[in-house]
């Protein structure tokens, strides 16, 4: 087990290093791009050349990469041209907002999708199973950009219950958080619920669960004590891998609701061609993805004893 953990951690570091090299080559291989991004399109070639020399961009690529990586590791991420402030500071504030959004997303998603999936998988083929399956397949067919529009049409424009933007101009407000969280959960719960259902149905058909039923144990006990433990292995792995999906999802939802979060920051950085900000944002997403994938893999091994010797 310990060897497996170490191997997986090494793999995680290697992935992050490779991703950083890829991003560096994409963004900074040609120093001209950096100068263009930092000084803007109206700078002269002479100004850009001077800026490059002054900032050490005349050094060999290998040295520049190592220095860039070093700066990144110690948290010196440069200044954002768009926001006229240190990148680390902006990313910190935005990340915090998205973390709150992400927390409520998972707080709602996990009980809803696992609950529905378990209910449907417990009795395969029942009317409840069919109703849940139809609900899930329809909601997963509504992409986030459409669900934001549709739920706004209902709750904002028709019923006037909720605010249509979540910019939180006058401080944090839970009322403004409802719509973004709802849009994300609506698209996503069906997918997890369906995986849970398939996994649950499979476990319910195994010999040991049938043996438990035949022994005369009450169904509640069979499901909660015997079946769920094994049925939840697959959804757990999936939920961890979902952090990666969430980043894609929040970009759309934050953009629509003008939520000042990490997702909209990535979009602003790339549309505004703010190179240092974009570099920091993408490195953070890769970091988060690599860490959660590692946890998912190790969790899978830890939860499923059959995998330990593999």
């Amino acid at each position: 087990m310990a060897r497996q953990v170490l191997r997986r951690l090494a793999l995680m570091l290697a992935t992050m290093l490779a991703a950083s090299l890829l991003l560096f080559l994409l963004f900074e291989l040609l120093p001209g791009n950096v100068a263009l991004s930092e000084l803007g399109p109206y700078s002269t070639q002479e100004q850009r050349d001077l800026w490059l020399v002054a900032n050490g961009y005349d050094r060999p690529v290998v040295i520049r990469y190592l220095l860039w990586l070093g700066h990144f590791v110690i948290g010196d991420w440069g200044n954002s041209r768009l926001f006229m402030a240190p990148v680390a500071q902006i990313v910190g504030v935005r990340f915090e907002n998205t973390a709150v959004l992400g927390f409520w997303f998972f707080a709602l998603l996990v009980p809803l999708s696992l609950g529905l999936g378990t209910l449907a998988g417990m009795r395969q083929g029942s009317w409840l199973d069919r109703a849940i399956s139809v609900l899930c397949i329809v909601t997963t067919s509504i992409p986030p950009f459409a669900s934001t529009v549709l739920i706004s049409a209902i709750f904002v424009f028709s019923l006037h219950w909720l605010p249509g933007t979540s910019s939180m101009m006058d401080g944090f407000s839970y009322r403004q958080l409802i719509m973004p969280v709802m849009a994300l959960v609506l698209y996503d719960f069906g997918y997890i619920a369906r995986i849970t259902r398939a996994s649950m149905a499979e476990v319910m058909a195994t010999q040991y669960v049938r043996a438990a039923v035949l022994r005369g144990l009450p169904q509640r006990r069979v499901v909660l004590r015997h079946a769920l433990r094994n049925a939840l292995i697959a959804p757990f792995t999936l939920l961890m891998l979902h952090v990666n999906w969430l980043i894609s999802g929040v970009i759309v939802v934050e953009y629509f609701f003008a939520f000042k979060g990490f997702g909209s920051l990535i979009l602003e950085a790339s549309l505004g061609k703010d190179l240092y900000l974009l570099e920091a944002c993408t490195m953070i997403t890769v970091f988060m993805a690599a860490v959660t994938q590692t946890i998912a893999d190790l969790g899978y091994v830890a939860l499923n004893p059959r995998m330990r010797r593999a």
Binding site: L11, T15, M16, A18, A19, L22, L26, N244, W245, I247, S248, I251, V252, I266, L267, S270, L271, K273, L278, C281, T282, T285, V286, A289, A290, Q293
Partner: peptide
């Protein structure tokens, strides 16, 4: 592993904006 470490939409945004 490397490509899957990037959230899909982030990858699209980087490529399309570049």
């Amino acid at each position: 592993d490397l490509v899957l470490a990037f959230p899909a939409l982030v990858l699209y945004i980087i490529i399309i904006s570049k």
